[in-house]
Structures are given as structure tokens and as C-alpha cells.
């Protein structure tokens, strides 16, 4: 049964308990961003400070529920006194810092990062990236036609430090095939920008399963299970937390993938309903995405203090019984 979202209930009466000491006052750090002064808590990142000023900074590998890895470099800013640009997502602010988020250098680097990504992977299911590309006038064909780099599947066997050639006039692009080796999700690494989010979610930041890691090196670096075995042969527990954090649609629930391939996925016809997972006593908040009266996807809010956006296999994929009632619905 689907429970409609309720207004927050009044806090219940609690027995008296010892006073919780107030948190220590945080030291404020003041800095200047694009000529504006701002004070933020010590330990904040430049990105936090930018956001507190309403400066919209592009991010791809950063996610609110993951440790910043600063690998995509689309969030770089110019910091006075720093030779190179600085990743705003992970650099803590310091007193007196002078930051420029929209200088010529910053705009060029951001555009180039986007063009390099668009020249090597299929970004058609990466809405954020496409929006940034428009903002920074990044072209998808800046380096010639995207051309498969090797035979399908060859990437899993690539030796580190042994590059292959593509025909002249072409830009080497990541080649598949789409990996469909289980019923719950699909891995289409032709769309992978190697943001490390799935690896973090599978490992230290959420699930602690370590079924996937980055393997190989350079342009052949790839997300892989051990020896590229199929997911059922790996340590994967199908929590789908990797799917939830993927920003480009490289990882996708099988149901969504087949609807998209069939052209029936239509977010304009979808509604989101908040509920609580019915499986166990943890009480994970669920958001059920419903299209044409059928649940097509389950997620959890990233800002939920219970889940931080993570779920288990049951909460994430175990909704089919709802719509498999006798006689159908």
C-alpha cells in the first residue's frame, strides 16, 4: 500500500534526560569570492562558501552523501596565490582567501573538461552535464567523431601503459558492450565518466561491500569487479546504491533501462510519493516514482538522516509485489 506523505507529527513527550551540551561554537573564516565577502564555518569547502553566496558551481563527481574525490575537475576555481586551479569541492576555505569562480581560466578549464568528457563517452543521459555544456558552450564534436577505442569488451583486458591507435581524424571513445548480467541493473560503461561515485558508494562511503573498484590505468581505467567477472560472480549485494549515485545513467535499474530503450520512460508523466519502506524496522524513507499508476523506480532522499540516500536490495528493488496483485492493477 502506498502511504501519502504526511506533515511532520508533533514531537512526542519524552522523559527528562540529561542536558546535551551545546556544540562548541565554530570558528568563522572570512574570504572573498568574486569580489564579495563571505564568512563561513571553519572546515567548509570553497564549494560550500560559493553555495552560501548563491554561486552555482558545476559538479560531477561531488555528491552530498559521498566524500569528495575531486577527480572530475569541473568545479575548479581560481585562488589567488595558487599556481594551478583548485577543486572547490574539496579545498577547505582559509582566512583571507581570494577566489574567482568565473575568470577566463576557470571558464576555459570547465569547458575543456566537459568537451573532453563529451568526446569520449555518451553523455545523452547525463542531464547535469548537458546543462553545464550549454552554460560553458562546450561542443561535443570538438575533437572529431567519437570512435570506438578497440573491440567491444577489449577494455576489460587492456594492459596498463599499452595504448592502441584509432583511425586518423577520430577521437578515441569508450566502447561497451552494455553489461546485462543480472535482473536488477544494467551497466553501460560507454556512458561512464569515471567519477568514482559508485566505487565510493559500494565501498567506504556506504555499503562496505567493495564489489567494484577502479581497475586499469589512464584512458583504460574502468570500473570493474575482480578480473571483470559478472556481478552475480562478484561480491555485489544489489543494494543499488551505485545506481543511485551515478550521474550519467551508466548504471541504471533494469526496469528504467528497458523503458528508456523502448522509449516509454517519461519523467513528465511521473509523480513522486514519499513513504517508509515496509520491509524491516529501520524505517528507511522511500520515494516511489510512479508513471501511469505503476511504480517504476524507488529511491531514498539524499538528505534523509536515516539513509543518506542509500537503501538495500529490498527497499530499492522489492516493489514489484505491490503491482503483482491477483488480477493485476
Amino acid at each position: 500500500m502506498i502511504v501519502e506523505a504526511q506533515p511532520a507529527p508533533q514531537p512526542p513527550l519524552r522523559p527528562p534526560h540529561p542536558r546535551i551540551p551545546e556544540p562548541p561554537r565554530r570558528v568563522q573564516v572570512s574570504l572573498q569570492i568574486d569580489g564579495r565577502h563571505v564568512a563561513v564555518d571553519e572546515g567548509s569547502t570553497i564549494l560550500d562558501a560559493c553555495r552560501s553566496l548563491g554561486i552555482d558551481t558545476p559538479t560531477l563527481c561531488w555528491a552530498p552523501n559521498l566524500t569528495p574525490v575531486n577527480v572530475c575537475r569541473v568545479c575548479v576555481v581560481e585562488v589567488e596565490g595558487s599556481r594551478a586551479l583548485v577543486p572547490s569541492c574539496s579545498r577547505p576555505v582559509s582566512d583571507g582567501m581570494v577566489v574567482f569562480t568565473d575568470s577566463e581560466r576557470v571558464r576555459l578549464s570547465r569547458r575543456m573538461v566537459l568537451e573532453l568528457l563529451m568526446s569520449s563517452v555518451d553523455v545523452s543521459r547525463a542531464p547535469d552535464l548537458l546543462a553545464y555544456a550549454e552554460r560553458y558552450h562546450a561542443r561535443s564534436d570538438a575533437f572529431g567523431a567519437r570512435t570506438p577505442y578497440g573491440e567491444p569488451g577489449s577494455r576489460d583486458l587492456a594492459r596498463p601503459g599499452q595504448s592502441r591507435s584509432v583511425p586518423a581524424g577520430a577521437a578515441a571513445a569508450i566502447v561497451g558492450p552494455v553489461k546485462v548480467d543480472n535482473e536488477l541493473y544494467v551497466r553501460d560503461y560507454e556512458r561512464c565518466i569515471l567519477c568514482y561515485r559508485c566505487v565510493e558508494a559500494c565501498g567506504e562511503d556506504a555499503q562496505n561491500t567493495f564489489a567494484i573498484a577502479v581497475a586499469g590505468r589512464g584512458f583504460d581505467a574502468r570500473i570493474s569487479t575482480e578480473l571483470a567477472v559478472s556481478l552475480p560472480e562478484s561480491a555485489c549485494v544489489y543494494c543499488g546504491n551505485c545506481v543511485a549515485v551515478c550521474p550519467t545513467g551508466a548504471l541504471m535499474a533494469a526496469s528504467e533501462y528497458s523503458m528508456r530503450e523502448a522509449g516509454t520512460w517519461d519523467e513528465s508523466r511521473q509523480s513522486a510519493t514519499e513513504t517508509i519502506c515496509t520491509y524491516c524496522g529501520v524505517g528507511c524513507p522511500l520515494v516511489l516514482h510512479v508513471q501511469d499508476s505503476r511504480i517504476v523506480k524507488a529511491t531514498s532522499p539524499v538528505d534523509s538522516p536515516v539513509t543518506h540516500g542509500n537503501l538495500c536490495i529490498k527497499g530499492r528493488f522489492g516493489f514489484e509485489f505491490v503491482q503483482a496483485l491477483p488480477g493485476g492493477r
Partner: peptide, 9 residues
């Protein structure tokens, strides 16, 4: 060949 592959640039 020697790029570690971590960052996009």
C-alpha cells in the same frame, strides 16, 4: 600511457 586516469584533464 602513464596517466593514472584519475582526473579528466
Amino acid at each position: 600511457d602513464e596517466s593514472c586516469g584519475q582526473c579528466v584533464p
